[in-house]
Design a protein around this nucleic acid. Sequence first.
DNA 1: GAGGCTAGTGACAGTCACTGACAATTGACA
DNA 2: TGTCAATTGTCAGTGACTGTCACTAGCCTC
Lengths: 211, 211
Amino acid sequence: MTLPGLRERKKQRTREALIKVALELFTAHGYERTTVDEIVDTVEVSQRTFFRYFSSKEEVAFAVQQMVEERFVEALRRRPPGEGPFDALRNAVLSGWDTIGDAITEVVPLDLYLRTFQMIESTPALLAVHLRRSTEMEETLARIIAEREGLDVDADPRPRIAVAAFSGVMRVTGQMWGRGTDQSLEAIRALTEQYLDHLGAALAPRWRDRT
Amino acid sequence: MTLPGLRERKKQRTREALIKVALELFTAHGYERTTVDEIVDTVEVSQRTFFRYFSSKEEVAFAVQQMVEERFVEALRRRPPGEGPFDALRNAVLSGWDTIGDAITEVVPLDLYLRTFQMIESTPALLAVHLRRSTEMEETLARIIAEREGLDVDADPRPRIAVAAFSGVMRVTGQMWGRGTDQSLEAIRALTEQYLDHLGAALAPRWRDRT
DNA sequence: GAGGCTAGTGACAGTCACTGACAATTGACA
DNA sequence: TGTCAATTGTCAGTGACTGTCACTAGCCTC
């Protein structure tokens, strides 16, 4: 492995500057009210360059999120094969939250990321993209689960169904966290744990009998 | 109730013409490759008028879907209070599929609707909007479920969690139906039934023991 | 049934995201 | 140092969408 040359480092710096400035402007003034021109003027590159780094204005908003998701997938891959599908998913998220903070801070301040996440949840256009990206990740997760269990994803619907139910709960978790008052990493971790525990109970035929 | 005047009827006709032409062009040439100008030229109204009826190009693609969703919500509201939350959701969808066909045909041919649904599933921009709309409906469903069970949605997470898991499965159903070969109303009904039955089993800790 | 009121429409100009084409620049490397 | 190739900037254009204002046509009153 060779050291990255000047050219490569410059590219990396431009990319990170674009992300940082974009997220700061987005969270400060709102996503819609921030134009791409404002971003590129601050970073001092041309608009054309922005669109060479990011295929759309939306994409830059998900740059950090992208990294978080990749970590989660890796965490799932590393789960011991003895765990059942649901436990593997659950433990992958929970262990992920423990190490994710440092990785984020290397790119942007942690609180900027947390504010970005809330902005995504509260901006319709971004929420839509977020949800679509989530389903793309679900497909990845389903394939990993299927492989763990020695199943064919296309023949047996259970991996996709389990992942869909799991992801649904994760999404509600993110939503509730965004609306709540405690906007810390610890809070989202606790909510995740709590809500996943509820899933089994929520599926029980009648709730009133066993409250 | 008075008969709608000429003005009102004219508006209704314009709206339906825009929907029909838009869906036909979308399904024939693709959503992205169809411009709003093409739609309005065919219907012979100005672009400005199009945007007075629909707030965006996306919205017209969901005009029929909107109606279907409203029906489902109504069906859920009419479920007997004795049913558990999950059964109520399940039966509302299944009974919905039986009567939905006629309602759709009043606006557009059934097969145009089915093709539109597939187009939505296979067009990233529309899929994103579709998913966001789904979560909006989930909120409605969660509130209905909470009310049925005499719970407070904001205090007890179970309604939202149950609905999220349920909707996740419904989404997978729609996806699988779109990818499959049998594109009939009956097929989607059968898939719905089959996949919902799998949900309980998919959550079981270990799958291998009970295949 | 003439005339005023107003909802609905069209025409026009402008903004913003995004793209293709080509020219200018600048690391990389012989 | 000079050449090559990657990166960036400039420019012109498209398509979705919005504000404004004038105009047309149902509607309603006298």
